[in-house]
Amino acid sequence: MGVVNPRIISISALYAILIFLSLFSRSLAELVFLILITCILSQSLNIIMGLAGLVSLGQAFFFGTGVYMFTYLVINEVNPYLSIILGGLVSAIFALALGLVLLRLRGVYFACGTLVVTLAAPYFISGTGIVGGFAGLNIYRYISPFYNIYLCLFSLLVTSIVMSILTIKLLRSPFGYSLKAIKDDHDAAETLGINTFRQKTIAFCISALFSGIAGAIWAFKQAYILPSIAFNPLRSIEAILTMLVGGTGTVIGPILGTIIYEAFRDAVMRTAPGLQVLIFGILVIVIVLMAPEGLIGLLRKRFKSIRDKIF
């Protein structure tokens, strides 16, 4: 690595393209918005799954928690921008509570736990009827004084860039190394003096924090919330898909994966509306079976000379 880090250049270039696109037209701005949402989810999944090796099927849960916390605060007339941060924090607290139970156990319990919470959450909302309950809630009148798509985009962009920087820092930090060690051999990591439970819990909380922020910003922009959309398990699979496409455990992987995915989704939406979920589910299965290391893994094999410089 020289004075100018090629990895940082390539990531900055991707972000620059996104910003440029969003200024081009309103519809492109909407697309960039979706890209950034998925990108943050994918990057947050990357921390818990790509680095620490824990399969999480619950990014949608933390996303939804962010959505609902944001809504709850906003209808109680809290400043939306503060609510975004608080939404993320509450998601992180949920992750802490969940992690205390699930991360003590080995095996599939963590993945199952995250899935079960995601599936149960909408029932909790409908059953108790809080924040609009089953029928959802329109919050436009609460947020309209602050509403501006470019401000939403900007806050998303900041969050996403913060995540990228965080991931870069993590990869070369003691904490990041301990997560990688846990991924490769849990017991050996423990005997080396790594408090595996604590490290996993922290990683899980960071991951949930950013998913929650993404959810809160999403709610800000949509201004209409529904339990089945906020906690849609599809979002978890989107995060997994984009991370796998780009390459797990890398900085640029989730960003690249998301851009490819959203472009592809846009095309599918135009040609075969209603079949997207079907197509993406099949895509995930194919990638898991054929290229578990993702697109970057394939590229790495192809162009060995540049692999360390960019990825």
Partner: peptide
């Protein structure tokens, strides 16, 4: 293969329910 199976069958569950919807 525990982890790959989790992801793949989770995706499969979405595919199948979507197939039924279609």
């Amino acid at each position: 293969s525990t982890d790959a199976a989790l992801i793949a069958t989770f995706a499969l569950s979405l595919v199948l329910s979507e197939l039924m919807k279609v």
